[in-house]
């Protein structure tokens, strides 16, 4: 099955502790992480770090949808990062959309994971996301259809690499239960490739 080409560049920004530009097909997102850093008074948590996430679309002000992505990515990062190692501090994760051709959410999640890995912050496991599309012709594919109006439903699955469990699932549109299961299996298979890609990029960094 045809799948989007993954590419990535680590450490593209000098200010954040970790940064990555991640591309899934044409979709591109820049992620940066600061952490652990000083925390604001109202956000102090006594026994762990407070994970903050901000997502920025490339044009216009962030809307409700963007806030939804923010909270999704914040939740994923919170489960994956060892926040309890850094009490009374903050971890800031920022995402910037560069280009969207459909897989924006999964691309942002993968970028966030690579940024975390590059910063060297402690993590329990890696997380990788896959987007599946259900087209109007009831075909499930990993490639986005050429025109956006052909998308009937969109599934985003996030897996961990340790146990292969599903961490998060985000869906848009209408679909049947079988279709969801089919997409889930497809996503699970593809997530293995995503993790292989992660490992390759990280090894590439260490060797040079």
């Amino acid at each position: 099955m045809e799948k989007p080409q993954l590419s990535c560049k680590l450490g593209i920004l000098s200010r954040p502790d970790g940064s990555a530009m991640f591309c899934e097909g044409e979709t591109t997102v820049i992620a940066g992480i600061y952490g652990p850093v000083e925390v604001k008074m109202q956000k102090v948590i006594n026994d762990k770090a407070s994970v903050e996430c901000s997502y920025r679309p490339k044009s216009g002000l962030p809307g409700i949808e963007d806030r939804l992505y923010e909270s999704l990515i914040r939740n994923i990062c919170e489960t994956s990062l060892m926040a309890s190692l850094y009490p009374r501090s903050a971890i800031l994760i920022t995402l910037q959309e560069m280009h969207d051709s459909g897989q924006l959410i999964s691309c942002a999640i993968n970028a966030a994971c690579l940024a975390c890995l590059q910063s060297g912050i402690d993590m329990k496991f890696m997380f990788g996301a896959v987007t599946c599309f259900l087209t109007k012709e009831e075909v499930i594919s990993l490639m986005p259809p050429i025109s956006k109006s052909d998308v009937k439903a969109l599934f985003v699955f996030v897996f961990d690499n340790a146990a292969g469990r599903i961490i998060a699932s985000h869906t848009e549109g209408s679909f049947s239960e079988e279709q969801y299961k089919e997409a889930l299996n497809l996503g699970r298979e593809e997530s293995k490739n995503v993790f292989i890609f992660f490992k390759k990029t990280l090894v590439g960094i260490n060797s040079c």
Binding site: K9, L10, G11, M21, C23, E26, T28
Partner: peptide
Amino acid sequence: LGFHKAVEAKPVENS
């Protein structure tokens, strides 16, 4: 065109 092409083309920068 696009950023994904630029990412592939360039070698990894020294961080």
